[in-house]
Design a binder for these strands. Structure first.
Length: 578
RNA sequence: GCGCCUGUAGCUCAGCUGGAUAGAGCGUUGGUCUACGAAACCAAAGGUCAUGGGUUCGAAUCCCGUCAGGCGCGCCA
């Protein structure tokens, strides 16, 4: 797969392709069975060269020859290949039959030149078949604050969207507002009760209603808006009838206030959505019913026991699922199907939903439903994010929206800041349950890995700022700044390591996108920052021979851009000073 | 009971579509600021990769069993 600016001469990865070509020609010539993938990797150990392939170990059996003997033949073939020998300084047989390749410094110069020419787009992917993806995440009942679990999915989903976009896909993001149904009714009654209480009328929050303090503050806001104008109505009607206009008012106004707060909080967390999609109109405009009628007509849904069911079992679900209850009310599932039908009608190539682990039992039926609608089992991808265990100095804190016991996204941000929070939440793989100790996070915030990366960025900016006038002029002519392709200017180990690290960025972006793994970007950023720090320690940029200085300035510029990009992909700032 | 996720250093976690001596941050110990930012660098200590088997030239990685933890299994959302 070509990756934009990298599809040109001077790309380090070109060597991988060349090696793969030589090997595959060899296999064909010998008539051996082909191997699934010709692995060319970057060895962890520097003594093993810049690139290595274990392919001779795989071939030994079918070739009926000793791996080392094969490796020696491969070495000769590689050296005889003009394309490989042009970029390679040494090819060595090692260990049980590995072939290790060491790059020429001149090949590295070409790579730096290419990266510099790409400017801010360094690493940006170009897909042969870009997908228009709808990414839905967070999507909660708007009846209370966002807690740290939501914060995790927000950080993950947002980073994934940025990464997939940068990797060459087209991504639209959406927040589905579950503003309909029993939980919302319960919420409306809870707000109404607090409103009444604050005005001296003794109405109790329902048994299984929302007890949190935030409900009182919502009631307070409403009082400031409308005074006691709704009190009489509540006194007369009580809280029982959730559909009574009096209760309905509190549900809607309360939900609006929560949603506003949510939007603001996510916004300051660096998370925004292309669209906020409300569930309610799906019901009120008859689209839920319409979808069910359609499914009944096609035979995918059927009536039984006074309810309507969707035939999900043939699509991998444990049992068929109810769409309309015997009390004639549609299930949440029915609305979700109407919502996903809407998504499909908007013409996306692929749908991604990010859900919390507590919803994973819901996956088979949702996938079944989308398959029924789209006839494509791959259309909907559901990513399950594991939970966040919140600890305070080692002690587990249980969370419950209903009881109002939770640590909110806002509190997390207040404790450690947006950058540290986002970096931390996304550094761990999404399918790993995550332990977050607030006390620890507070204490370590100044030593959080995010600062390591940001520091490297700020340091580079500082170096570039300190360039003497005649060298600073280089920055306005990057073409002249870049080392000539083929120039042997990068001779020190730490320069080479940094270049190889930078050169891995395009590949990293593609992998992080395809594997839905933002945490790889975080890991890469830390690695690259480390490479830069070591480079900095060992290679002076200013005050050395002009040609050397010039090429190192080029390295700084590329490093700065890649680090800034990594941070941006994670929704973290790239400060110019700290 | 069934399904999904997980078990890697004292702690929090990477590494998982198989590759050479299993990594990082924090913590611990000891070094490095008279040149571009010490929020940094260098070094040391710390591991039966939960456990038992299997596949393979090669397994933390793939397969099966066991143990342990989390989540789910509704005409709730």
């Amino acid at each position: 797969m070509m990756t934009g600016a990298w599809a040109s001469r001077g790309e380090i990865r070109l060597l991988e392709h060349a090696v793969q070509r030589v090997v595959s020609e060899w296999i064909t010539a010998e008539g051996w069975p082909s191997v699934a993938e010709i692995v060319v990797e970057r060895p962890a150990d520097n003594d093993h060269g810049d690139y290595a392939t274990p392919v001779c170990l795989q071939l030994a059996k079918s070739a009926r020859r000793a791996p080392r003997a094969l490796a020696e033949e491969l070495r000769d073939r590689l050296l005889a290949d003009p394309e490989v020998s042009e970029s390679v300084e040494a090819v060595e047989v090692a260990g049980p039959g590995f072939v290790n390749l060491t790059m020429r410094a001149s090949a590295l110069s070409g790579a730096v030149r290419t990266m510099l020419a790409a400017g801010d787009d360094v690493g940006r992917g170009r897909r042969e078949r870009p997908l228009h993806v709808l990414l839905e995440y967070v999507s909660v009942n708007p009846n209370g604050p966002l807690h740290v679990g939501h914060a995790r999915y927000a950080a993950y989903g947002n980073a994934l969207g940025r990464i997939m976009t940068f990797s060459g896909h087209r991504v639209s993001t959406e927040f589905y507002i579950n503003d309909y149904g029993r939980q919302m009714e319960m919420f409306g009654r809870s707000v109404a009760a607090r409103y009444a209480q604050a005005l001296g009328l003794d109405l109790q929050v329902p048994e299984d209603g929302y007890q949190g303090e935030y409900v009182k503050s919502i009631a307070g806001t409403i009082i400031a808006e409308i005074g006691d104008s709704r009190l009489e109505e509540l006194g007369a009607g009580g809280l029982e009838d959730a559909d009574a206009p009096g209760i309905h008012f509190f549900r809607v106004r309360g939900y609006e206030l929560v949603l506003e707060e949510m939007r603001a909080e996510l916004d300051s967390f660096g998370v925004s959505f292309d669209r906020w999609f409300s569930e309610t109109p799906l019901h009120t405009e008859g689209r839920v019913q319409g979808t069910i009628d359609q499914l009944l007509a096609s035979g995918d849904a059927y009536a039984r026991d006074e309810a309507v069911w969707l035939r999900t079992m043939p699509f991998g679900d444990d049992k068929d699922r109810v769409l309309i209850r015997s009390n004639e009310r549609p299930t949440y599932f029915a609305a979700d199907i109407a919502y996903h039908l809407d998504k499909l009608e908007r013409g996306f190539d692929h749908l991604i939903n990010i859900w919390g682990a507590d919803h994973h039992g819901y996956v088979p039926r949702m996938k079944a439903a989308v398959e029924i609608l789209s006839h494509d089992p791959e259309m909907l991808e559901i990513i399950i994010g594991q939970m966040v265990n919140l600890l305070e100095e080692g002690e587990l804190r249980q969370m419950s929206t209903r009881r109002g016991e939770m640590v909110t996204l806002g509190e997390l941000v207040d404790a450690v800041g947006v950058d540290a929070a986002r970096f931390f939440l996304v550094t761990r793989s999404h399918d790993q349950t995550l332990d977050l100790d607030l006390g620890l996070a507070r204490r370590q915030s100044s030593e959080n890995p995010v600062y390591y990366v940001q520091y490297a960025h700020a340091r580079i900016v500082s170096i570039l700022r300190n360039l003497p006038a005649e060298q600073a002029a280089w920055l306005s002519d990057e073409g002249g700044l870049a080392p000539t392709s083929g120039e042997d200017i990068f001779v020190l180990t730490h320069e080479r390591e940094l270049i190889k690290g930078l050169a891995g960025f395009p590949q990293l972006v593609m992998e992080a996108a395809d594997r839905r793994a933002p945490h790889r970007v975080a890991g890469y950023a830390q690695e690259l920052a480390g490479l830069f720090h070591v480079f900095y320690k060992n290679c002076r940029v200013i005050g050395v021979e002009p040609a050397v200085s010039r090429s190192r300035v080029a390295l700084c510029l590329v490093s700065q851009r890649v680090l800034a990009r990594c941070l941006d992909l994670l929704g973290v700032s790239a400060p110019e000073s700290m």
